[in-house]
Simulated assay, not measured.
Amino acid sequence: MKRVLITGAAGFLGSHLCDRFITEGFYVIGMDNYITGDKKNISHLFDNPNFQFVEHDVTEFVKIDGDLEYILHFASPASPIDYLKIPIQTLKVGALGTHNLLGLAKVKKARILIASTSEVYGDPLIHPQSEDYYGNVNAIGPRGVYDEAKRFQEAITMAYHRFHGLETRIVRIFNTYGPRMRLNDGRVIPAFMGQALRGEDLTVFGDGKQTRSFCYVDDQVEGIYRLLMSDYVYPINIGNPHEISIRDFAKEIIKLTGTKQNVVYKGLPIDDPMQRQPDITLAKKILNWKPKVNRDKGLKITFEYFKTLSKEELYKSEHKNFESHIKK
């Protein structure tokens, strides 16, 4: 049985990846320090004989006994609320954590896939964003702790590939959604759905003309799996190219949830990108991948998941620190 290490295993994407690799017949070692992950996301796996959990911070030395064929590095805060609240940890997991895991991959002769992000493009000056675009990033702005952590992560990964001959893969993840997202983590879909469930008006930052493209988690996991198993070493965008403005998306959520809320507008967060849409030409050509789940279906599944959350989870507020970074 082949063995895979998945860091960030208790997070949104990490937990779905654990499920996928167990389904594919792997022995999965999940690693997380629960700084943003949640034990309930992987609790259904604790009795599975093909799953092992290790509570550990990857910014410290990582030791795994036995063979490893694959490593997937998904340990990182990924929402604005998280990386604005814990900026130093965000930088450390992108730098020290990635260095530790690349070193482990070298020792184990394992193939490693690094989770990068569309945020490496910053507030883009080209649209849609293709992998050969270098980006427009403010390194010293509030979001720079996340953007630059990921850009460094890509750079050191390619250095290990070129200098040590390490088998590396890099996925640039665009907005992804689905069950197990934290309801109040500052991202668009859980924020809107949480407000709808609480009977609050939906908050749109700026004038709402900024765009996003949302990929359902099953499609994202499929793309990641295909990339890991491919021979392609350079970054690949995985996301849904169907673009929508935030203003129109808020109206879509109100219609989906059957609520009567209004849309209210607040100042735009600093360095918030105005456009976000992946060019997935490479993913189609190299991985034979494109998203299959349409937004209507994915949003219905996600909303049904959020409806099962407890009142404590529904009313937990995490927005105070995030709103301190909004332009007045």
Rank of each mutant, 00 (worst) to 15 (best):
L299V: 07
R169A: 03
W289E: 10
I301V: 15
Y70S: 05
V107F: 04
L68H: 10
D219W: 14
K300M: 12
D132T: 14
K106T: 10
V264Q: 14
K92E: 04
M1R: 11
I114G: 01
V145N: 00
S317C: 06
D57I: 08
R295E: 04
P179K: 03
N100G: 05
G144Y: 01
E313D: 13
T211K: 09
G298D: 07
P80A: 05
V204W: 03
D38S: 13
G206W: 05
R226Q: 13
Q220N: 12
L228C: 11
T36R: 03
D201L: 10
G208S: 04
K108V: 08
G135F: 08
P278S: 12
I35G: 01
F214V: 01
D218L: 11
G223E: 02
G25R: 12
I140P: 00
D272Y: 14
F46R: 13
P142F: 04
N50I: 08
K85R: 11
K92P: 00
I6C: 07
H73N: 15
P291N: 08
K209Y: 01
L125M: 15
N136S: 15
R172Q: 06
I140D: 11
P278F: 11
R182W: 08
T302E: 03
G30A: 14
G165M: 04
I35T: 14
I246D: 06
I86Q: 07
T281M: 12
G122M: 00
T308V: 10
N50W: 07
H99N: 14
S79Y: 12
T259H: 06
K292R: 12
P142D: 03
D207W: 06
Q210E: 13
Q220V: 09
I114L: 10
P80I: 01
P278H: 13
F214W: 10
H164I: 10
A191R: 15
E69D: 15
I114Y: 09
S118G: 14
D65G: 13
D185Q: 02
G122A: 05
M193L: 14
D219N: 14
T7R: 00
P278W: 10
T257H: 06
P235Y: 07
Y70K: 06
K260I: 01
T308Q: 14
K40M: 02
M193V: 03
G239I: 03
L125Y: 12
P77L: 03
E304Q: 14
L5P: 10
K327R: 13
E154N: 06
K297R: 07
A191K: 15
K328F: 06
S324H: 09
Y305P: 01
I86S: 05
Y225Q: 11
L17A: 03
M229C: 11
F322R: 12
G97Q: 02
R198D: 02
T203Y: 05
L202Y: 07
G141M: 00
S116H: 05
T259C: 13
